[in-house]
Amino acid sequence: MLPIPRRSRSALSRLAAATIVVTPLLWSCSNNQTDTGSGTETDATAGADDGSISNGALPAFQASTPATGARVDLEGGWDDASKHVRVRLYVAGFANLLGLAGHLRFDPSALKLTALTGAPVPLGPSKDTLTWEARTMAKESPAGRVLLGGARFRKKPNPYVGPEGAVVDRELWVTLEFEVLQPGTHTIAFDPASTTARNDGNEEVSATWGSGQIVWKQGGVK
């Protein structure tokens, strides 16, 4: 479980907190909760859904072209509940994944990370938590760089059994919420030199590390 303290709230988020009951995004290693979302993500082009948005279109998230094979996908959109753009990272398409890591970067003058939660990844399709446990590292340090990592571990390890990678069809890894500070197109992408995905043989697994853009064409959130 890796929630980070929320930072100073914007007017929008204060309003959202006051009007909407938010389900806490708490992650447990033992019960394998998955992120069910705390509100409704909205296509930014659909327009405002309440009076708190002062004017113009809502910020939207546009993911890079979907890849196939081993990959980290970014998905997201406007979240009515939090009044932020929520971006989810999914790990998918790995046949043998022991761990992965990377630095996710964005412009901190344009985007402010307001929430960051990680889910234990990779666990594999069976979610055999009697045998396996996973840990995720997720921390913004400094602003504009999110240090991410995920790896799985045998619960009863010993030197006679080595690590064992997981088959990952699609698992939610990290959820981020951004407050958009400026209009424009703001890229969220991994630093290519920082990424790694490795199998249980400590071999690098070729993977596509997705990216996306938060687009806010006009106006601002007051």
């Binding site: 761990g99 890591a101 990377g102 590292m137 990592g149 790896a151 045998r154 059994v161």
Partner: peptide, 21 residues
């Protein structure tokens, strides 16, 4: 020079190793 996710993944490779059994 930085504690990040790579440290975690490197740890996973070594997990279970030990000189006490």
């Amino acid at each position: 020079g930085l504690v990040d996710g790579r440290d975690l993944v490197d740890m996973a490779i070594r997990h279970g190793r030990g000189v006490v059994f």
